[in-house]
């Protein structure tokens, strides 16, 4: 018979991270191997975070909502073909570039609507990458020649 319970992905990834951290890493002496193993622990933790929540979809939906609130203010005539692009990231890009190039009240309205959303998403993604950044920071404080 097949396994009644198939091990779940998160348990497997967490176990790999623990073994890398506790068993493999302490035995490595080569700088590059240690650096890579430490980053792999961070990568596995990052992957578990991605598995828990589809942040990409959430960001996309949130941005689409912010853009919908602006569509009346910034018409196709300003954005050209970008206005019809189905990607909110493409549309938001066109809107923010337009705002940079056309200072004024309308540009401020665009920025006020989009910038806080994008800034918050950026911070959220940066926080998700923290486990890797910690390992990376340790290596970058190392030396090129020792």
């Amino acid at each position: 018979m097949s396994l009644p319970v198939v091990p779940d992905t998160e348990t497997i990834l967490r176990s790999c991270a623990r073994v890398l951290q506790d068993v493999v890493l302490p035995g490595l002496e080569d700088d590059w191997q240690r650096f890579s193993a430490a980053l792999m622990v961070g990568s596995l933790q990052y992957a578990i975070g991605v598995m828990h929540e589809d942040r990409g979809a959430a960001h996309r939906a949130e941005l689409a909502t912010a853009i919908a609130g602006l569509k009346g203010d910034l018409a196709e005539e300003e954005l050209g073909a970008a206005a019809a692009n189905p990607s909110p990231f493409e549309v938001a890009s066109a809107m923010l570039v337009w705002a940079e190039e056309h200072p004024g009240a309308q540009a401020e309205a665009v920025r006020a609507a989009l910038y806080p959303v994008l800034y918050r998403q950026m911070e959220q993604e940066a926080a998700a990458a923290t486990p890797m950044m910690e390992a990376f920071g340790v290596a970058m404080r190392g030396r090129k020649d020792e």
Binding site: L39, M40, M122, E125, A126, M132, F136, A139
Partner: peptide
């Protein structure tokens, strides 16, 4: 794995 770290965390740190 340093590619993933640079493409996400390091990139976002510079953007911030």
């Amino acid at each position: 794995p340093n590619m993933l770290a640079i493409g996400t965390g390091v990139h976002l740190s510079a953007l911030k």
